[in-house]
């Protein structure tokens, strides 16, 4: 989980509200540039972690270090206004009584420098022409871009974004998301984005940290996270995985879908299979091993997800290109892609 020369280091952070532990000994490193996403189901403590980094929550234990400056540790506390950490809130939180320009200049000092920097940053987000408008005259997407500009203006070392797209219309969300991603990359600032939407995390971030029940379970590139989930919880949160009962013998897992290499102890286990890990091919109308029938289909345009009921009784979902899909009801033979696959322990111990 470590990063070479991280800008932010969170160590064993604990945040409690009354008796409830929201963040439980969380550790996280943020690289000095690029976007890191913190994903997790709602209530997992990701927003609390973000707010503790910003200085809006006081952790009961652990430390937060930005660069070589300790922001909070036992006996040390830096007030939010002295942290050099920018924050973008869910609904922008633009000051309603100030214009766009005044909002962006809010965190800047020095009259001439303020003007220059505000114009520079407004052109970066492409909203220079809206400088004199008030926030209630902007669309939701424009408000978020101004909020980002306002947070970037004082050149903070780290930008925190708390579900910044959640309040936007779904149609607009995609577009604002990619704009914000580009702006963040052009600004060169390190960013930590909190979201409950793993698709958003994957599309925007170079690095994704998964948080469940107050703990960071894994932090790595989206590809690694998807291919090599460190635990069942991560695998399940990242989604669309299926667990298939199997028997492991000498590095090979045997299941209803055939045998495949794996890394696991001998004995029973659960094979982690994603819908795109399976192949379907037409099969004769005879019952047999690894044979079944397509019983239902969800159509997504470019691809489809077919539900296949095996002759042995199991059901499994298979994602395939819609151009190569067989009609619903077809008899099929199921094949696993070449392994290796992850095998998790059986349910009782996991």
């Amino acid at each position: 989980m470590t990063v070479a020369r991280p800008v932010l280091q969170v160590r064993d952070l604990v945040v409690r509200y009354g008796g409830v532990t929201a963040v439980d000994r969380a550790c996280l490193d943020i690289p000095a540039a690029g976007v890191t996403a913190l994903v997790g189901p709602s209530g997992c403590g990701k927003t609390s972690l973000l707010r503790a980094v910003a200085g809006f929550e006081a952790p009961v234990a652990g430390s937060v270090t930005l660069g070589d400056r300790v922001l909070c540790a036992p006996g040390t506390w830096v007030e939010p206004e002295r942290r050099e950490v920018g924050m973008v809130f869910q609904e922008g939180a633009l000051f309603p009584h100030l214009t766009v320009g005044e909002n962006v200049r809010f965190g800047l000092a020095g009259r001439r420098e303020r003007e220059r920097r505000a114009r520079e940053i407004l052109s970066l987000v492409g909203l220079l022409e809206l400088e004199g408008r008030y926030p209630d005259e902007l669309s939701g997407g424009q408000q978020q871009r101004v909020a980002l500009a306002r947070a970037l203006a004082p050149s903070p070392r780290l930008i925190l974004l708390d579900e910044p797209f959640a309040a936007l219309d779904p149609g607009l969300r995609e577009q604002v998301r990619s704009e914000v991603g580009q702006i963040l990359r052009r600004s060169g600032a390190a960013a930590l984005l909190v979201t409950h939407d793993q698709e958003e995390a994957f599309s925007l971030a170079e690095r994704v940290a998964v948080m469940v029940d107050g703990r960071i379970l894994q932090a790595s590139s989206p590809e690694d996270l998807y291919r090599e989930p460190a635990s069942l919880q991560v695998a399940e949160f990242i989604g669309a995985g299926q667990l298939v009962g199997c028997e492991v013998l000498e590095g090979r897992a045997y299941s209803a879908f055939g045998e495949t290499p794996c890394v696991a102890e001998d004995g029973s286990g659960r094979l982690f299979v994603r819908p795109e890990d399976l192949l379907l091919c037409p099969a004769p109308d005879v019952r047999g091993r690894r044979m079944g029938a397509v019983v239902a289909r969800r159509f997504f345009g470019h691809d489809v997800v077919d539900r296949v009921r095996m002759d042995s009784g199991e059901e499994i979902e298979v994602r395939l290109l819609s151009s190569s899909a067989l009609p619903v009801g077809s008899r099929v033979r199921v094949t696993l892609r070449p392994g290796p696959f992850r095998v998790f322990p059986p349910r009782s111990s996991g």
Partner: peptide
């Protein structure tokens, strides 16, 4: 008052009283 407004001001460098 939305607490996010005050928190924004704090993270932009304003102390409690100025916020």
């Amino acid at each position: 008052v939305d607490p996010a407004l005050e928190e924004s001001a704090r993270s932009l460098g304003c102390g409690r009283w100025r916020t």
